[in-house]
Amino acid sequence: MIKSIVIKSLIQNITVWIISLIAVIPVLLIFINAVKTVSESSSMNFALPRRIQFENFTTVIEKGKLSHSFLNSLMYSSISSFVCIFISAMAAFVLVRNRTRLNRFLYLFIIMGIALPLNYFTLIDVMKWTELLNTRAGIIVLYMVTQIPFSVFIIYGFIGSLPKELDEAGVIDGCGPKRLFFSVIFPMLQPAVVTVFILSFLNTWNEFVLPLYYLNSAQKWPMTLAVYNFFGQFQQSWNLVSADILLTILPIVIIYLLGQRFIIAGMTNGSVKG
């Protein structure tokens, strides 16, 4: 009996290791090939490099316009996620607390956006009218808009679990709606907000189609497009491509590792318990 439990647990441990390995193999592959020479990396495999080529990274930073695009990505992802969370939380707050017929309809109407396919053709016209085409502000607004439905959905569920007595206490203390929301409610939303922030930050950081079509200057390109551009030019040098990829995904991997607790906890709260 004990023996069979040990074997069972051994099998489980081995299985889970194999699966974890499959999940990270591509990243490891990039990691190893990023420090090889061109010829060593011509077939991407796990053979170790003869000498670690750190200079690949300096080459890549110079040629790949990485510092520029890093700042762009950081700006696009953080501003759009921040603003999105604020306006989504404000909307979700009123939608939860004041469930009129209209508001219930508006809630459904907004979260239908999760399903809405983006129309890239006509969006160009809208961007032109609003003078946002080819601007950083424009791309930030677009990212923000694409994240609104999902953010409202998660925060809506979370606010529902906050007792309404909080609001009443606030009113008795003489709060207006703005003070009530910003000094009482919003701080209580912290777990949901962190989750939404991380998820929308990651989504935005990884997206590439919107800037490809709606930004026309390489100066404004985010990191994903910089990789695309780089791959176009250096397709033969897999070591440089790998180094470029590694530097691109490093920030998100770090954010992910730091925030993984919130991602997992937050997704649980928002999407399952509601």
């Binding site: 085409l133 080819n134 200057s217």
Partner: peptide, 23 residues
């Protein structure tokens, strides 16, 4: 919030203030 509102006005009403675009 102000930032959001400002870009909201920009986005919604299409004022001609922003001249960063090369368009």
């Amino acid at each position: 919030l102000v930032l959001g509102l400002v870009s909201g006005i920009l986005g919604a009403c299409g004022t001609n203030g922003n001249n960063e675009n090369s368009n």
